[in-house]
């Protein structure tokens, strides 16, 4: 069966979050560091897509992506997977309880997602006897939260392009 351009475009935008997810993990670039700024794009990607279009990003893939990140970055297996699943969990909860889609709602509900995920991250690294720069973790959380609307805009554009 021949794919029309429209169908191809639809499929491409449908697969884009998944491609991004695995690109980020394999490339080891879940955290973007630019001078003083430090943003966890992995969390934002998972949170946005589980909240808006969970059919495009399976929990199994999120788990797998976390495992890949753990191996690439040299952490014990399961740590990134668990914190990403925490983000997905909060997003799934928020999706069930909210009706209206607004940036402000998403942004505010992203705070507990970040807190849960970082707490799990910290606790599991502590359990595995890994030292961690807590100030860096705090800085990363703050900038991830501040940067959320920017990626929210980009991802919403992708969703709209898929729809059109």
């Amino acid at each position: 069966m021949k794919l029309s351009f429209k169908q191809f475009r639809y499929k491409f935008f449908e697969l884009l979050p998944l491609l991004l997810l695995f690109f980020i993990s394999l490339n080891g670039s879940s955290i973007i560091n630019v001078k003083f700024f430090s943003i966890n794009i992995h969390y934002i990607l998972v949170y946005y897509w589980i909240l808006r279009k969970p059919e495009n990003l399976g929990y199994g893939f999120i788990f797998l992506s976390g495992i890949i990140s753990d191996v690439v970055l040299g952490f014990p297996l399961g740590i990134n997977a668990l914190s990403l699943l925490m983000v997905a969990g909060v997003a799934a909860y928020v999706r069930v309880v909210t009706v209206r889609i607004t940036l402000v709602n998403d942004w505010i509900s992203f705070i507990p997602a970040l807190l849960f995920a970082n707490f799990v991250y910290f606790a599991s690294l502590y359990y595995s006897n890994y030292s961690l720069d807590y100030l860096y973790l705090l800085k990363n959380s703050i900038f991830t939260l501040i940067f959320y609307p920017v990626l929210w805009g980009v991802f919403t554009l992708i969703v709209n392009l898929q729809k059109s």
Binding site: G58, G60, I67, G78, I79, A81, L82, L85, M86, S124
Partner: peptide, 18 residues
């Protein structure tokens, strides 16, 4: 929707892996 695994099962699996 179209999810093959439950979040709870995968969370438990991650904890077991750690």
């Amino acid at each position: 929707t179209q999810q093959r695994f439950s979040l709870f099962a995968l969370t438990i699996l991650s904890i077991i892996l750690i």
